[in-house]
Amino acid sequence: MNRNQSHAAFNIAGYTFLTLLALLCLLPCLLVLSGSFSSERQILTIGYTLIPEEFSTDAYHTLFKSIGEVLNAYGVTIFVTVCGTLAGLFCTAMTGYVLSRRNFRYRNQVSFLIFFTTMFSGGLIPWYILMVRTYHLKDSLLALILPSLLAPFYIFVMRNYVKSIPESVIESAKMDGAGEWRILVRLILPMCVPALATVGLFIALDYWNSWMPALLFIDDRAKYPLQYFLYRMLSSVRFASVVSAKSGVPTPDLPNESIKMAMSVIATGPIIFLYPFVQKYFISGITIGAVKE
């Protein structure tokens, strides 16, 4: 086999493999999308298909009739995501900055104390009991925000990025009489915009997709975030038990099956639209995070 042939063979093998994987990645998404546009009758008689056999937008119409609850869940998720990301990002940046400073004598000890939390934990149950009985976070939106405010991985990504800024920049600012807070806010943070964007997007994605704190702590339906709202819908036999029959449609006629898929589409939609613009930040984030020291 000569060189050109082997190159061509390699390219064909590579593209076939990658294309197959990409199709497998898209397949479940397409099935859900198609399910959301299938008529209830089709699903009950034939089942879910890759392309709707009987096209229908009934599921979206029904969802639209009880739009209040969907919008409310959206509102909770947006509130939690915005507050959590802003607060979390600021605390992450501050902590990462301190740990990056070479003249901070205890940086290794403090780093280890943070890192240790990833190696040993008290487990779910003591944590849960403490959250409910001691911190009284049952049915509080704080229960959705606080537990994932800081994550060791993001702190270390931030620390590694700040470390790449030459110490002399900080030294000369100090010579000019700037205090640590001023250096952080006016000098360091503006230089860290790429890292802040990356870490901020990671945190935001975590909050947007989070459902487990809601599963554990939220009973009040008005405080269901989007993913948990969807979770309840998927795990309940009938859609009507989640969205009350406010819509005036008698429950037996509600499209139960297609509506689960429609809700899945609505809960994921914004992420898919943002994805092409933000993915490069995520890739650079994983790469910085992997570089040690």
């Binding site: 898209l26 399910g35 795990s235 992420i271």
Partner: peptide, 22 residues
């Protein structure tokens, strides 16, 4: 292709439940 393969990372586990159900 690389973007499509990276996409599932963005999709929540709840939606995975929806996939398997479907």
């Amino acid at each position: 292709l690389q973007s499509v393969i990276f996409l599932p990372y963005f999709i929540s586990f709840v939606i995975l439940g929806s996939f398997t159900y479907n």
